[in-house]
Nucleic acid binder design. Structure first.
Lengths: 420, 420
DNA sequence: GAAGGGGTCACCCCCGAC
DNA sequence: GTCGGGGGTGACCCCTTC
């Protein structure tokens, strides 16, 4: 209902040559939805503004990637399974967008590289980006048809097997360090430990700009918003597929069966809330269930919380949704109606609504068939039980590592790059 | 309720020396539940009777194994996960039984071997039996404390990885055949094909008796009933864990949510039935749902069938259960009550039961809250959709291969055996 | 074919009862 | 601890639909 509705994007991968003005303002030539581009973190925004003031080159993201995407193992890459779209891609065909970046305040040729960074640091992620069937750095040469904007279409995210990651890190570090600068066994241990701190279900795109001839970085990198692995119960899209009832009594305690997409019983809650006329949240409570009421990750049996006014004289429309405490994400809400108890209603209403015949359909008064209630449900979720990833000891979020230079080789419009 | 209730077994692994009479009757010295022992197939029984008539030795199964057991991969065998029990093991502790076999009409020493056979042929199964941490043939030397009965306790079933099976078969066949009797490539192909026809989720125990000195078979083998892998959706125990309602209207169409153990949406049905006073089935119908109403193998939303008498004047107790068409197995039934429509009841009853107040608990008349009903459900399960294993082209069920002789080596009471 | 999904195999753990 | 289970996960393999 809410989060999937966007303006039908005007930015697409077919870049408009008319918008190719070398401007200092980040607010030019884009659709209304991008007047305030969402940046990966505060420091980038500052950097941009500094760059604008000082007339220095900078990168800015014009189209963010979608926030949910299925990471694929290399063995799954025989066929094709769709590419990473832009956040504003329309569901309908023919208006797809792709992650897009613009190099501002710059003249002449430049090379834009797209790679994967970790979600909570600027370090490289062990997963790999892929472009169609090619297995090399994802780069694009600018200007492209006169534009300094480039859309990366056809991207996929290759899920590196967990067991391969320590070795991968070891290779990387042992190459970077001189032969005598490290102790092999110790470095291997460090890589094992670092592996534990890498979240394999969240990545960010990292864009870097390089001088075409030297490979030297032109400006600081920019990072996209996080992209969550759609296949993992820790990061997937929460969804209530179906429920057996969408109404209950104001004193709560009604049993509801919901069928949901994969959840983790240690890290899931059900939030009821009410919005007033202007959309502000005026009440909130939780559905009650035990971990054992979560059935194999795909169904939850819970009891409704009491409404804030158990003697309400009128029916009240509220919402309920899934909530994942570890990252605060929630599902699309479902409507739920607290049906005012017939004895609390105004006399006029009571006459009209009560005593409707058993088994008739379509009446506005529902009856409550789940009585007597199952008692003693309690929401026992505790911080300890939720298995939240401990915050790893890593560079803070706003630390930007120096962009390494690239070794370049031209290959048509594509540039083959290697780490120096 | 029904299938798990048995006499509390008197046969246990502690064999009673008193029952060690060399008798010709298979009906002696066992508990009432074994007066008619269940034999794996008809031909065995004939063989037994022939053997009895002719005074020849024969094997008979005294305690069958349980029919559901979790097969474990070798990598899961670090800890301990419980052993294969006898079918009549009591749920309460201290009265466990184990698969038990008796060698009849025989004097002197004999060696009883237990191994795994396929469910639909007498051929050896690629899975392995294990006994505690030992990895060798499971054998026992008879007589044991004067008895010709032997219980195999501490058995586990090791799940051979599917990808390893062609190689395993190839090794076996290429050893059995002479060097020039086979074409390597062709044999490998045959092994690939044979692998497809082996059901890795069903095994049977095969018991063979051997002369201690020569290893020659003493009598034909006997086979236990099938043992199904508890972890596979194709063979596991069907179970309705929870349902949101256990009653409905006689004309049916009420929506029921059930939470179930892992099922295959292409191979599952819901059967309603009614028993008369003497336990005969007098009515049967199906719950209606689409494959898409099966939620990730763990929940089903269905609508109830109409009762045979939609105008019943009294409430009717019936049952519903899960049914797996491929093998005809079903879950424990749950009770379901068709509540007579209030207008069809006898006048006296109507007075007492109708118009009870909304929201009160404990009354015998339930109300129906799921109206209006979801329409247009239809049970569309067809034979074609059920993905039933095709019957492989293999020896018929009653074919018994000649028992191969064993190469023997004594090691205390245990005998180390090798295939000749 | 493309673009999405769902299910499975093999493995890795977890827990509660002793 | 260990026993006797049980649930979840990573990697992979398929299947629907267009």
């Amino acid at each position: 209902m809410s989060s999937s509705e966007h303006d039908n994007m005007s930015e697409s991968s077919n870049l408009d040559p008319a918008s190719n003005e070398s401007t200092f303002s980040p607010y030019s030539g884009t659709s209304p939805s991008q007047i305030v581009p969402e940046l990966a973190n505060g420091i980038i925004e500052l950097t941009c503004e500094d760059a604008i003031r000082e007339n220095k080159p900078y990168l800015r993201i014009i189209e963010e990637p979608v926030d949910y995407f299925r990471f694929r193992y290399r063995s799954e890459m025989l066929g094709t399974h769709g590419c990473l779209l832009g956040r504003n891609s329309a569901q309908v065909k023919k208006s797809k967008s792709h992650p897009t970046v613009e190099l501002c305040n710059y003249n002449g040729s430049a090379l834009i590289r797209c790679s994967l960074a970790r979600h909570n640091s600027s370090l490289e992620h062990p997963h790999k980006l892929t472009e169609e069937d090619q297995d090399r750095d994802i780069t694009s040469l600018l200007p492209l048809r006169g534009s300094y904007k480039v859309a990366f279409s056809g991207l996929g995210i290759i899920h590196t097997a967990k067991k391969d990651i320590p070795t991968l890190l070891y290779k990387r570090y042992s190459q970077e360090l001189k032969q005598n600068e490290f102790n092999e066994r110790k470095l291997r241990m460090q890589c094992e430990n670092e592996t534990k701190n890498i979240n394999l279900n969240i990545v960010r795109l990292m864009f870097t700009a390089h001088d075409v001839t030297t490979g030297a970085p032109i400006c600081p990198p920019v990072f996209s918003q996080s992209i969550n692995n759609l296949k993992s119960a820790a990061t997937n899209d929460l969804k209530i597929c179906r429920a057996n009832r969408y109404y209950g009594r104001p004193n709560g305690g009604d049993t509801v069966y919901i069928l949901v997409e994969k959840v983790n019983k240690k890290n899931i809650a059900i939030r009821f809330y009410e919005l007033d006329e202007i959309g502000d949240k005026v009440w909130e409570d939780r559905g009650h269930f035990l971990q054992s009421d979560v059935h194999h990750q795909y169904a939850i049996v819970f009891t409704t919380p009491p409404y804030r006014d158990t003697k309400t004289k009128t029916d009240v429309k509220v919402f309920f949704e899934l909530l994942r405490p570890s990252d605060g994400r929630c599902s699309e809400p479902k409507e739920f109606t607290y049906i005012a108890d017939v004895y609390n209603r105004d006399v006029k209403k009571r006459k009209a609504e009560s005593y409707s015949s058993l088994g008739s359909s379509g009446g506005s008064v529902k009856s409550f068939s789940d009585l007597p209630l199952t008692l003693d449900f309690a929401n026992t979720l505790t911080k300890k039980e939720m298995d939240i990833d401990p915050m790893p000891i890593l560079p803070p979020n706003n630390y930007i590592p120096p962009t390494p230079p690239l070794k370049l080789r031209l290959d048509g419009r594509r540039v083959v790059t290697e780490r120096v």
